[in-house]
Every structure is written in C-alpha cells, then in structure tokens.
C-alpha cells in the first residue's frame, strides 16, 4: 500500500508538472500583449517595452516558465493585473468559499444519491427504478446554468423562498453565508445526485447478481443483514471512489454555478480573470483546481484500497 501511494504521488507530481506546462504555455498564446493589457490601449510603445522588460517578458519562454513555476512553488503567485493585489490571499479566500459550497453540496447529494440508487437497484425494472433512473439521467446531463437559472426562476423569484443572488461578502462566515448557499448547493448537487444514484444503482445491481448475496439469503440471515453486510458493503465500494473523485469534479461544476449566482468562489474568480485577461490569476486559479482534482483522485484510490480487503490485505 505504501509503495502504491508513493507511486501515485510521483505520478501526481508529473501530472502537476505537465499541467503547469500546459497552462503556462496556453496562456502565452494570449490574443493581446500582457503589457498592453496592463497599460491599456493608449499606452506608448516605449512604456510597453519598458514594462515588458520589467516583467521579464522578453526572456526565453522556458526561462519565464521556470521562473514562474519556482515562484509558484515558493508561494509567490504574483499580483493580479487588474487589482494589483497579491494573488495568493485572493485565491485562498475564494477557495474557502468554494469549499463551503462544495461541502454543502456533498452533504446534500451523497446520502440522497446513495439512497435513491439503492432503492432503484432493489426495485429494478419496476416503476421506482424507472422513475429514479429517468430523473437521475436527466440531472446528470443538465448543465448547471440551466438548472440554476430555472431554480432561481421558480424558488427565488416565483416562490421567494431563497435569495436569487448569492454575491455575498467574500469574507462572510458560514452562518452568514448559509441562506445564500442553499440554492447554489442544490444546483451543484443535481448533477452529482444523478451521477451517484446511477453509480450506486449499477454497483448494487452487480453485487446483487453475485453468488454470495444469494448464499447469504440462503443462510437464512434477516433481510436487512443481507442488504447491509453482504450487499451494500460491497456495492458502495465503487461509490466511495466516485464521491471522492467527485470533489475534484465539483470544482468544475462550481465555475458555472458560482457565475450563475454571483457567488464569490474560486470558479467565479476564474471566469472573472479570464474575462479580464488577468494572467497570474488564471494561472494560479487553474493550478489550484488541477491540484485539488489530482489529490481528490488520489484520495479516492487510497480510500478504495483501504476499504477493499483485496488490496488492503495481500495474499
């Protein structure tokens, strides 16, 4: 197991390295010149040239990359081009907001998705299954901006249950933020809910087909024991991975949801940065998301290994 984790860490390192190269080089293809973006359209060519020199933009690309990556690792993420403020505290503050939203969403969709998935599997090919499978299929495919705006239209504007806008003060505490979190959390949850429900359903159906479930039945164990000890213990194993991996994948979903609700999270920040062509912000935000993505995948694998005796205990 330890060797396996080490191997995965090495792989994550390589991934982050390659991802940083990809992100760095893609952002070099910017349509405009960075110096011109900073100084505005009307700056003189000399001023731009001076700034380019100052920012080190005239150096060879690989030197610029090494410089950037080195600073990034040391924690110096540069200053935002638009607000001139240091990037790191900004990204970190937004990250914690996103984490709040993601955590809330996880609390909603994981238990619900599992329950619905198990029900669908147990009632396979009967109406509850058709209903749950149909709804979860619909949820999986629905883009967050569609479900988000529809929720706003119905629940916020129509019924006035929740605020339509979640553009809270970025430094709000959890309790202050809570009422503003509910709608965005539901929005993010829908996709996750559909996904978890489908995975749980198929995992449970697979396990139910196994001989050992039949054997457990024929051992005369009470039905709940057969379900929990023999079926769910095995069938939820893949779900665990899906949940853990979903944390990284949530980050992607947050980009759109936060934009819809104007919620001050990392995703909203990234969209803003892209619209403003704020290079350091884009680079830092993307790297953080990639890192979270990679580490949640690692967490998924480790968790799976720990829960699965086949991997935890060797021959």
């Amino acid at each position: 197991m330890a060797g396996y984790i080490l191997k995965r860490l090495v792989f994550i390192f390589i991934t982050l390295l390659l991802a940083s190269i990809i992100i760095f080089s893609i952002t070099q293809f910017l349509p405009g010149d960075v110096a011109r973006i900073i100084l505005g359209q009307f700056a003189t060519d000399t001023a731009i040239e001076n700034l380019r020199e100052e920012l080190g933009l005239n150096r060879a690309l690989h030197i610029q990359y090494i410089d950037w990556a080195g600073n990034f690792v040391r924690g110096d993420w540069g200053n935002s081009l638009t607000s001139k403020l240091p990037v790191r505290p900004m990204v970190m503050a937004r990250l914690s907001n996103s984490a709040m939203l993601a955590g809330m969403a996880l609390l909603i969709y994981v238990p619900l998705g599992i329950i619905l998935g198990v029900i669908a599997a147990l009632k396979r090919d009967k109406w509850p299954d058709h209903l749950i499978s149909g709804i979860s299929m619909a949820f999986v495919g629905l883009p967050e901006f569609v479900s988000g705006l529809l929720l706003i239209a119905f629940l916020a504007i129509g019924l006035q249950w929740f605020p339509a806008n979640s553009s809270i003060n970025p430094d709000s505490t959890f309790l202050e933020a809570l009422p503003f979190l509910i709608l965005p959390a539901i929005t993010v949850s829908l996709t996750g809910l559909g996904y978890i429900a489908r995975m749980t359903r198929s995992g449970t159906i697979d396990v139910l087909r196994n001989d050992y479930v039949r054997a457990a039945d024929l051992k005369g164990l009470p039905a709940w024991q057969v379900l929990i000890r023999h079926t769910l213990r095995n069938s939820l194993l893949p779900t665990v991975t899906v949940v853990a991996m979903g944390i990284g994948w949530l980050m992607g979903g947050l980009i759109v949801t936060e934009t819809v609700y104007g919620y001050p999270g990392l995703g909203r920040l990234l969209v803003y940065a892209i619209q403003r062509q704020d290079l350091p912000l884009i680079q830092a935000g993307s790297m953080i998301i990639v890192a979270i993505y990679s580490f949640s995948n690692l967490a998924a694998d480790i968790l799976y290994g720990m829960l699965n005796p086949r991997i935890r205990v060797g021959k």
Binding site: N210, Y212, A216, L218, N234, N308
Partner: peptide, 16 residues
Amino acid sequence: ITMVHQDPGASINPAM
C-alpha cells in the same frame, strides 16, 4: 436446509 454452491470463490463475501 443449508446449501453449498458451485463456485466457492463467488459464494463467499469478499469483504467479510
């Protein structure tokens, strides 16, 4: 009544 099944590998819960 108890049963002994064909494929012993598949008839025993792998996680217990």
